[in-house]
Amino acid sequence: MDKEFDLRDVVQMKKPHPCGENRWQIIRMGMDIRIKCLGCGHSVLIPRRDFTKKMKKVLEKHEE
């Protein structure tokens, strides 16, 4: 089950952030993926393997 996600997409993670928000924007992609909380602006770097496991769904695709 491959979930398609791309840079600047807004994704929902399985667990919400401690600030209460569960919408995250992908701001960097590579071996690790950096996501930014859209509630408080905190950013987290997660290994790609963990990210694909913890991501629930893509909420908004980034339009070029």
Rank of each mutant, 00 (worst) to 15 (best):
K53P: 05
R8D: 14
K61N: 13
I26F: 00
L7E: 07
Q25K: 03
V10Y: 03
K36H: 12
K54S: 12
C19H: 08
D50E: 02
M1L: 14
C40T: 06
K3D: 13
V44E: 10
R34T: 00
K3W: 09
L45E: 12
K53M: 06
M31G: 14
C40R: 15
S43N: 12
N22T: 04
H17N: 08
K56S: 08
E4D: 15
K15S: 05
V11L: 03
C19S: 13
D50R: 03
E4H: 14
S43M: 15
R8Y: 11
R8V: 10
V11W: 01
N22L: 05
D6A: 14
Q25E: 05
P47L: 01
P18F: 03
H62M: 05
P47I: 10
G30L: 03
L59V: 04
H17C: 03
G30P: 05
S43W: 13
L38Y: 03
P47V: 04
M31D: 09
C40Q: 14
K54A: 12
L7R: 04
D9S: 10
M13G: 00
L45P: 07
T52Y: 15
Q12G: 05
H42K: 13
I33G: 01
H17L: 11
H62E: 06
L45Q: 08
K57P: 06
V10E: 01
I35H: 01
D9A: 09
G20W: 12
R34G: 05
M31Y: 08
K56I: 12
Q12N: 05
D2W: 15
F5S: 13
H17G: 07
K57R: 12
F51P: 01
V11H: 02
E64W: 13
R49F: 07
E60C: 11
D32T: 04
H17K: 06
M55D: 08
C40K: 14
R49T: 11
H42V: 14
R34N: 01
I26N: 00
R8S: 11
P16S: 06
M29A: 12
F5M: 11
